[in-house]
């Protein structure tokens, strides 16, 4: 048997496929672009960096004893507000997304409708959440309602995509068997499709709740939604109340961490494909 050899005369153990070549190309491109960006394009003036100030801030960051108890209570309240904003966003997004997810699933509608719905969803998803919020703020003014509606747009598109994919994974045979018995569309959807995709749907909701909490925190500093923990952290940072800022960050961290644990548990029960 002739052994294939590479340019250095060493035997090739494995035939190289297009995938291998593509991966090599990507790795080289990524490294080259990174090197260019880091060392040539970006001229960071290291005298701007001050480890000393950073450390000084850090020391004040964890002095929670200097945060007045009344302030702490206020902050917990705002954290609760932020969580509620996230949950409302998720609920609205999940509900509207469910309706359109059914229309977007290839096995439940005709391909034309599915393509249109999925196209709209991927367009809505491409507009960053913060832009949706800005657009709604321009129309309605800055309130909690506008923040929720703006955030819900992005969630809605997320749910359409993930729900449609979950519905498409439902066993074809089940749907056809029901069709053969003369079941109508609603009977098929509520009798077979939703029940068999339910665990997946729930784990998507859990995953999105985690994301939406983060978004609800972030929306504060970026737009200035009143009464959220993000706004409070931002104001504290600007006013130099580093203890308050540090405490706020810890609150956000604990909440996000607890959510992550719950979501991981839920996802272990029903493996959602990578996303």
């Amino acid at each position: 048997m002739r052994v294939a050899r590479n340019v250095f005369g060493k035997p090739k153990l494995k035939e190289r496929t297009t995938s291998d070549i593509l991966i090599r190309l990507l790795v080289i491109t990524f490294l080259a672009v990174s090197a260019y960006t880091l060392f040539i394009r970006m001229e960071y003036k290291w005298d701007l960096f001050s480890a000393q100030t950073g450390l000084k801030f850090l020391a004040r960051f964890i002095r929670f004893d200097q945060v007045p108890p009344k302030m702490m209570l206020d902050m917990v309240g705002r954290l609760l507000n932020t969580i509620i904003l996230g949950v409302l966003t998720t609920l609205i997004g999940a509900f509207v997304g469910l309706v359109f997810g059914l229309l977007g699933a290839r096995n439940l509608t005709n391909p034309k409708v599915s393509n249109v719905v999925k196209g709209i969803a991927s367009f809505v998803r491409a507009v960053p959440t913060i832009i949706w919020v800005l657009i709604f703020v321009a129309g309605y003014g800055l309130t909690a309602t506008t923040a929720v509606v703006g955030m819900a747009f992005h969630s809605f598109a997320f749910f359409v995509k993930s729900y449609a994919e979950s519905f498409e994974e439902v066993d074809r045979g089940t749907i056809e068997a029901l069709k053969a018995t003369g079941a109508n569309w609603f009977q098929i959807v509520f009798g077979a499709v939703i029940p068999s995709a339910l665990t997946k749907l729930i784990s998507w909701i859990a995953l999105r709740s985690e994301i939406n909490f983060t978004v609800a925190v972030v929306i504060g500093p970026a737009v200035g939604v009143p009464g959220t923990i993000g706004t409070m952290i931002n104001n504290a940072a600007r006013a130099g109340n580093y203890e308050v800022q540090g405490f706020g960050i810890i609150l956000v961290f604990i909440t996000a961490f607890l959510m992550e644990i719950v979501v991981t548990r839920l996802r272990q029960n029903s493996i959602v494909s990578n996303h």
């Binding site: 701007l48 983060t214 960050i249």
Partner: peptide
């Protein structure tokens, strides 16, 4: 578990505004 915007606000103090 700390949102990136919070990282931005916090690290701003040590690194200053900009691409880096």
């Amino acid at each position: 578990n700390i949102p990136s915007a919070i990282w931005a606000i916090t690290l701003l103090m040590a690194f200053w505004f900009g691409e880096f």
